[in-house]
C-alpha cells in the first residue's frame, strides 16, 4: 500500500516505465501510458502498449514480479514501486481518459525542457485496442531521486 502523497505523485505527468524478468533473468521493459491507483492505495494499474510490451507481458505472466519507475522530468523526483502479484488485465475503455490526461500532463513537463511535442506524441502514440493493463500491489517502495538517498526505501 502506498501513501496518498505517493499515489498522487505517480498519477501526475511522470515518465513511467515497467520491467519484469523471464526465466533466464533477462529483464524486459516498456514505457507506461499512464497510471491509476485504486483500492485506497493498495492497487496500482499501469497501462502499456501490447505491441511494444510483448516480452514484458510474457514475463509478468511468468513471474508476477514487476518494478515500475515513476519520474517527474521537471524535478527528477523518482519513485520505484515493486510488487510480486502482478497480473495482466484487458484494458478498460473507461481508462482512456487517464491515458489522455497522462499524455497532456507529460507534455506539460517535457516540452519546456526542450523535447519537441511531436516527438513526445510519437513516443506515446497509441490505439485503444493495443493497450493492456498491468495490475499489482506495491510491496516495496524506493526513492530513486538522484542523490545520496537514491535506492533507499521511501520514508
Amino acid at each position: 500500500m502506498i501513501d496518498s502523497q505517493t499515489a498522487a505523485f505517480i498519477q501526475t505527468g511522470v515518465s513511467i516505465s515497467v520491467a519484469a524478468c523471464g526465466a533466464d533473468r533477462l529483464p524486459s521493459m516498456s514505457r507506461g501510458m499512464g497510471c491509476l491507483v485504486s483500492d485506497n492505495g493498495r492497487e496500482v494499474r499501469v497501462f502499456v502498449k501490447r505491441s511494444q510490451a510483448a516480452e514484458l507481458i510474457e514475463n509478468i505472466c511468468y513471474s508476477a514480479r514487476v518494478a515500475c519507475v515513476f519520474s517527474l522530468p521537471s524535478t527528477n523526483r523518482t519513485v520505484q514501486l515493486k510488487g510480486s502479484d502482478a497480473r495482466m488485465e484487458v484494458f478498460d475503455a473507461a481508462d482512456l481518459a487517464v491515458v489522455e490526461e497522462h499524455i497532456a500532463l507529460f507534455l506539460e513537463q517535457v516540452v519546456p525542457l526542450g523535447i519537441p511535442e511531436e516527438v513526445v506524441r510519437v513516443i506515446l502514440a497509441y490505439t485503444a485496442d493495443d493497450l493492456a493493463t498491468v495490475v499489482y500491489t506495491p510491496s516495496a517502495a524506493f526513492s530513486q531521486t538522484p542523490g545520496p538517498k537514491a535506492g533507499k526505501p521511501l520514508d
Binding site: M29, A67, V69
Partner: peptide
C-alpha cells in the same frame, strides 16, 4: 541522455529493478 535512458536488471530471486 537528452531523453534519459533506462537500465533494467534482475536480482537472484527474479525481482526486476529499473533505474534511469
Amino acid at each position: 541522455g537528452v531523453i534519459p535512458g533506462q537500465i533494467a536488471t534482475c536480482d537472484p530471486d527474479g525481482m526486476p529493478n529499473l533505474a534511469y
